[in-house]
Simulated scan of single mutants.
Amino acid sequence: MRACVMFATETYALPILRPLAAAAVARGVQVRWLVTDAVAQRLTVDEQRLRNMADIRAFSPDATFCAANWAPPGVPGLKVQVFHGFNANKREPDRGHFAIRGFFDLYTTQGPATTLPFEALARDHGHFAVVETGWPKLDPLFAGNVAHPIERDARPLIMFASTFSHRLSCAPAMLDTLRTLIARNDRQWLLTLHPKSDPGLIRAYQALEASNARFMDSERLVDMERASDMLVCDTSSVIHEFAVQNKPVVTIANRRPEPFMLDVATPGDVDAAIDLALSKPPSLMAAIQAHGDDIHPYRDGRSSERVLDATDAMIAAGKAKLHRKPLNLVRRYKAWRDRASLFPA
Score class of each variant (00 low, 15 high):
Ala3Ser: 15
Cys4Asn: 07
Val5His: 01
Val5Asp: 00
Phe7Ile: 07
Ala13Ser: 14
Ile16Cys: 09
Arg18Thr: 05
Val29Gly: 02
Gln30Met: 09
Arg32Cys: 02
Leu34His: 01
Leu34Ala: 08
Ala38Cys: 05
Gln41Pro: 00
Glu47Thr: 02
Arg51Gln: 09
Met53Gln: 12
Ile56Tyr: 03
Asp62Gln: 12
Phe65Arg: 01
Ala67His: 00
Trp70Gly: 02
Pro72Ile: 06
Val75Glu: 01
Gly77Phe: 03
Gly77Val: 04
Gln81His: 14
Val82Tyr: 02
Gly85Trp: 01
Lys90Thr: 13
Arg91Glu: 15
Arg95Gly: 08
Arg95Gln: 15
Gly111Val: 05
Leu116Thr: 09
Ala120Trp: 05
Ala122Asp: 08
Arg123Phe: 06
Asp124Gly: 12
His125Ser: 09
His125Tyr: 15
Val131Asn: 03
Thr133Ile: 08
Trp135Pro: 00
Pro136Met: 04
Leu138Tyr: 10
Leu141Ile: 01
His148Leu: 05
Glu151Ile: 08
Arg152Thr: 15
Pro156Asn: 13
Ile158Thr: 11
Ile158Gln: 01
Ser165Thr: 13
Arg167Ala: 14
Leu168Lys: 04
Ala171Trp: 08
Pro172Cys: 11
Ala173Lys: 11
Arg179Val: 02
Ile182Met: 06
Arg184Val: 12
Arg184Phe: 09
Asn185Glu: 15
Asp186Leu: 09
Arg187His: 10
Leu190Ala: 02
Leu190Glu: 01
Thr192Leu: 03
Thr192Trp: 01
Pro199His: 04
Gly200Pro: 07
Ile202Glu: 01
Arg203Asp: 12
Gln206Met: 14
Ser218Asn: 11
Val222Gly: 00
Met224Ile: 05
Ser228Tyr: 04
Ser228Glu: 06
Ser228Asp: 06
Thr235Ser: 13
His240Pro: 00
Glu241Thr: 12
Phe242Gly: 04
Asn246Arg: 14
Pro248Asn: 01
Thr251Trp: 06
Pro257Trp: 15
Glu258Leu: 14
Met261Asp: 06
Leu262Arg: 02
Asp263Pro: 14
Thr266Glu: 14
Val270Leu: 07
Ile274Asp: 00
Ile274Leu: 10
Ala277Ile: 04
Ser283Glu: 14
Leu284Met: 10
Ala287Phe: 06
Arg302Lys: 15
Ser304Thr: 08
Glu305Leu: 02
Val307Asp: 03
Ala310Trp: 04
Ala313Tyr: 08
Ala316Ser: 12
Leu322Arg: 08
Leu327His: 11
Phe343Leu: 15
Ala345Lys: 10
